[in-house]
Design a protein around this nucleic acid. Structure first.
Lengths: 225, 225
DNA sequence: TCGTCACCGTGACTTCGTCACAGACGACAG
DNA sequence: CTGTCGTCTGTGACGAAGTCACGGTGACGA
């Protein structure tokens, strides 16, 4: 049923301490699923009825307003669970958030009843779920901190570094970058141009190369934490 | 032990469906507490070790940056639970949020072990807790939506209406109002002056009177949702 | 009555968001 | 190879919002 056995559990350190019986439940009741890049995983007024463990790839969760403005709230990678579907599952509430796969994503789905069973049976599993909720809550609070108190320049620098990771170069448009930090394309373009003039990055269509990460880190300051 | 018996549970509709045994646990294990106005309930690096039901009064939860800038995240009133302490209790995570009582507050505290016991025992109680988490998460997403996409004027109008409720007048400084919406005092002062010129409010030291709620509602637009 | 202190008003300036529009690049068909 | 087309990027102009500096003013106690 699960093509990779229960090895996916290794991606979730808090699950390591679960008793064998509960690991067995996870292994036998969970079903793996693969989603191509660009799949809409979640949007308002429509919920997926399972508890999802992400085992590979990346899911971007973002907010939209009615004019199409966008801001990225957080990303889910291997080892994360989708808290929006959990909320929708258990609290029947509705959010104004969207989630889309950025790459091909593999996830393990736990049926609602099994999830609830585990929540009742296992203090450790409860701790795991609460921890995940706490992390997402912290993500949202970080976003609020950034948009409210940090300058565009520092947020942009921080986000460039985060997205480039150690690859040093990234394929992204200015429009997408603006959506990352909840700003406007023109504003991002101007700041990138300024970064380029200072020799911190090189710009080309759809491509940004980080040339001086140290300076960017300095400009990032406290942004993103 | 609990001076008001278990009548406080009536404030939490989702608890109504709990079996008698679980209501009994809540009634006998929970302890009431009263906090004077201005008490710091929560701040980073320091957690209170219990699960809190607010039964009277109002708690303001807000974020600070290092320069003293402030933004209100949400309020807890009668019928709300304090999710930050829950998180701290179960996930041992730390937040950059502060919580302070705005009025005298009465709360019912459930010891950690009893909370965990109930979480394991009662699917309904789990649903209740998840619903509370979902509501706070929705609050944070609303804050993000507002600070990112809404104008100061609409946010200010919306917040004036929310704070004035139906009393029509409120005692608050421009500085506090700025903290409500995460802006600066001067900006708020200027917009209030504009509102006054339009006859929507009257201003005095420490006092704002709403004179034309309909116009304010119009200006609020989609802010606060 | 006189400081003192918090609160409020205002001008000047910077940063950011919005609008309009002009180039520039890449993919692709003919 | 070349023209076309859609997307991406650059830029000026302007309004909205944040920052800084400073002055006025009302409440309140010494």
């Amino acid at each position: 049923m699960n093509p990779r056995g229960d090895t996916w559990m290794a991606l979730f350190p808090p699950l390591a301490g679960l008793p064998e019986a509960e690991r067995g439940m996870l292994a036998t009741r969970a079903a793996a699923a693969a989603l191509p890049a660009g799949t809409t995983v979640f949007e308002p007024q429509q919920a997926c009825g399972a508890f999802l463990f992400v085992t590979r790839g990346s899911v971007r969760v973002y907010q939209l307003d009615q004019d199409g403005n966008e801001i990225v709230l957080y990303r889910l990678g291997p080892g994360s669970i989708c808290i929006l579907t959990t909320m929708a599952l258990l609290a029947a509430d509705r959010y104004s958030a969207y989630a889309v796969t950025e790459t091909e994503v593999e996830a393990v789905a736990l049926p609602g009843p099994t999830f609830d069973d585990l929540m009742g049976r296992s203090p450790r599993f409860r701790g795991f779920v609460f921890l995940a909720h706490a992390e997402r809550m912290a993500d949202l609070m970080r976003v609020i901190q950034n948009v409210t108190f940090e300058s565009i320049e520092s947020r942009l620098a921080a986000r460039l570094l985060a997205l480039a990771a150690d690859r040093g170069t990234l394929s992204i448009t200015h429009q997408q970058l603006a959506a990352e930090i909840g700003s406007a394309r023109e504003v991002v373009s101007r700041h990138l141009k300024a970064f380029e003039r200072r020799g911190w990055v090189s710009l080309a269509r759809n491509r940004i190369e980080v040339r001086n990460a140290a300076s960017l880190r300095g400009a990032a300051g406290d942004a993103d934490a």
